[in-house]
Design a protein around this nucleic acid. Structure first.
Lengths: 194, 194
DNA sequence: AACAATCGCTACGGTACCGTCTCGATTTGA
DNA sequence: TCAAATCGAGACGGTACCGTAGCGATTGTT
């Protein structure tokens, strides 16, 4: 064999983590078993335990591999930046496997402090992205200085989370636009009408 | 013994359901076991199975006992009615044991169609309450006839759900007021300013 | 007081899972 | 090429859970 792109150890790790992600997305954290991960990944259970000390750690590392960092745009238009911001965060959070894992992770996080910290960090980071966009608008004079940014982020994020997790419906771009426009109008931001 | 308010069978049922609710609220649906329910309720496991055919049914009936129906006020003020409506629904949904069960139930509902139907009915009912308030406002001319009521309900419910389930923070009355006021302002409803 | 229904207690078979271990086979790197 | 590291396969003890069954004790009814 010549020049493998990944060492065997790396290949094994990846296979195990992939299978774990798929399984958690399918049956949730609680019903995910190491035996099933072994069976699906084609990696022996003993080998899994050579790479990960416990199921808890395995799940957390698997979740880690799904998390991506959205980018923040600066178009000069608050409306466009907010739409872009929440569109990106929705894709990163609620599409793909991570989206299917979300509810189970949130539930498990109630009883697993480590997982709780991970999700809280995820949430806080997303809020910081939106906060940054809004603070930039305040600095630019597009928003009044006394606006409650914390509240604004909740007003913008909430309807999207609710649509995905409670109503189990897709978060469309139309919804994001409607939410952004209504909330901006609610705090008195004049908008260019087509 | 004289004139028991409840027959023994009713007393047993109640004890079992109460213990189930408490246990689900503490450890979630998945980790709730019949043995533990028996131990906590003081009812023998065999007796539990005489009343409920399976754990799934027991959990669903236990959840049922927690669900209360909020009332709808008609004060003539759209703002006040919305605040009252969402305040009541928040109390009914996110306070007490049902609040602690919520995330675990939502997760379990992904893989238990029966539980899924129950939660969906719960969600739909709450949306209908808010929809009724909004439709009344349209009829009274307080809202434009072409307003998207579905979207409005999502805009109002979302931030509250998000605050409770994602941020794990209490849904205060101040938050509800701020959400209602901002959303109403967003669709161009003039408000009396104090 | 007597009888039927219901209960508590306990044990059971069956299953599933965790995390460990052994051992023979395979791979890697020097 | 050859030794060391890593792997797959599978068995293991231990635990927890489900749902059932047997049986003596309690209850409520008549």
């Amino acid at each position: 064999m010549i020049a493998p792109l990944l060492s065997r150890a790396e290949r094994v790790r990846e296979q195990v983590l992939d299978a774990t992600v798929a399984l958690v997305a399918e049956v949730g954290v609680e019903r995910t078993s190491i035996d099933e991960v072994a069976s699906r990944s084609g990696v022996a259970k003993s080998t899994i335990y050579r790479h990960f000390p416990s199921k808890q750690v395995l799940v957390i590392e698997a979740v880690h591999t799904c998390m991506s960092i959205p980018t923040v745009t600066d178009s000069g238009s608050l409306r466009d930046d907010l739409i872009s911001c929440f569109s990106g965060m929705t894709r990163a959070t609620y599409e793909g496997k991570l989206g299917s894992m979300q509810l189970s992770l949130m539930d498990a996080a109630q009883r697993d402090p480590e997982l709780g910290r991970l999700l809280r960090a995820q949430t806080d980071q997303k809020r910081r992205f939106a906060t940054a966009v809004l603070e930039r608008a305040v600095a630019a004079g597009d928003l009044p200085a006394d606006v409650d940014i914390e509240l604004l982020v909740t007003l913008l994020s909430g309807p999207l989370v609710y649509t995905k997790l409670v109503r189990l419906q897709p978060v469309t771009n139309e919804l994001i636009v409607a939410v952004v426009d209504t909330v901006l109008a609610g705090i008195g931001v004049r908008q260019s009408v087509d």
